[in-house]
Design a protein around this nucleic acid. Sequence first.
DNA 1: AGCCAGCCTG
DNA 2: CAGGCTGGCT
Length: 574
Amino acid sequence: MSFWSKGMYSSSDVCLAGCTAERLPPSHPDPPPSNLGGFYTSHKDSKNIKGLIHRIENTASGLSCSIPVEYNLSTGSTRTPLSPDSYSHYDWSLNSGHQAKRARVENIIKGITCTDVMPNQHEETGCVREEEERVEVSALHQKHMETSGTESRSESHQHLREVRTKFDPICKDEKFPRWSVSSEAPTDEALSKSCSESESSPGKTHQEWKKVALGHFSSKPDRVKLMADILKYELSRAVSRSVDSIFKSMPLTQTPTEMENSETTLPPQFSESMENKLRCGTAEVLLPDVQTEALSLVVQKPELERPQNFILHSTSAVPLTPKSPLFFSSEPEQASEQNNITHHQRHGFKCLTDGCSEGGEPRLDTYWNLVKVKSKVTSRSVRSPHTHTAPVDQVILENLQLPHVKLEPDCFEKNNLYMLNECLTTNHLKKAKLMFFYTRYPSSVVLRMCFHDVQFTRCITSQLIKWFSNFREFYYIQMEKFARSALLEGAADVRNLTVSRESELFRALNMHYNKANDFQVPDRFLEVAEITLREFYIAISMGKDRDPSWKKTIYKVICKLDSDVPPEFKYHFG
DNA sequence: AGCCAGCCTG
DNA sequence: CAGGCTGGCT
């Protein structure tokens, strides 16, 4: 049943959060390299990936200065390592040489920024406006600062200006919007948007960017480093895209409530694949411990020892071996259930009051289910508390429709599991009696098929055979009794001997095999009973009962009638 | 000998 | 319903 499979594998044992926290790379680390018109170098510490962003900050005096800003890529926040006051103090306490350089830097920066704005904008706002809060995320810039060491800031900016000139066409193409860190840190959304946008234009811009970038770096170390950066960027972008696609699909399959519990709840595709893995990977499937009472009858013998036996399963259980997805769909179940209902209706199976849904529709799937395995005094089975095994062929059996025997009302929540028993229970006896309505001489194969929840041993087989022997005994005794009674009553014509549901003979038999009267006896049984009665009547009337083995002929006749087991038997018992 | 069905008994 | 016993069959 779907409700069972739904909660079957609580995703609590699957930690998705761990993946997001540790395996999924944050979308930030994608070096927003050249699209920001600069170079970026990431410095990884244990937790955060930080980069130094040189913010061209406009001061009140209109002068710009470069302030190293530590940009936390994990949080998207920025902070200056020094307070503005202290920094400005540091900045303005430079010596005259530095001041000269600073003047040069300012000019250069002005030149850089002014080339970015449109002439009209330039006139309106001025370069200072454009420079304001402009962020230069420059890894390579930082690299230069680190490697050359002696390289001045102005030279770096000169380098930066050149690169920006190269990349400006790309930036102006608006495929790579610039972010202003001081006012707004680049968010995931912006980054991913940029990526998706760049991707949406058949890679033209992206390729162009790579060409330009590669062409620009003539020196081998730079090219190698850029290549590495590009590869990192591409890799992280691909991963981010994959992760995004996965998480974008989650809202489609999860309710808001489920989303809240997304740490422990997997989307169906996850849980399904996980289920498949669990099934395929192990011979046993862990199921929620919903069983209480009946578990005492579960046999702990692993399936490997009994490859042909059928082992306990839930109604939604699936084969251990991978099967086509059709097996996992609910359609076969629904179809079989419909067959079941129609069949029950066709054969007049009663829908007991407590077995019907509110709408009056028979709830055969829940009410008519396999025998509730009840603890018995003679039970010697061993409990296997948490491990239930799923049989390979149970789906096939399920499609054949297992016997639906009225269960006690309190077993509704338990009857979705079939137990593998080492012994026969009262419910097995009940089932056997009901089976007797269909077959008087069941073969061992039929018994195995019908009692697939039982671990068949020689003892079990003998017991079942003995049961049916006893059933036959009572049956033949009743037949002989009523045949003699009819003969004594002076029934002249054997054709007057009929067995109907109102007949006394039927009541006696029904009382014995169907005491609770919760099973609609098939018409076939009435036919066979009538034949048996007439056989006895004829034999007795002909005086054959004087032969000590006179019944054996009748036994053979009745046994032969079993050879053509009515199709409905397969529906209910096999 | 082993298995099985039937009969008898409790 | 189960156990003991018997007879037939392989």
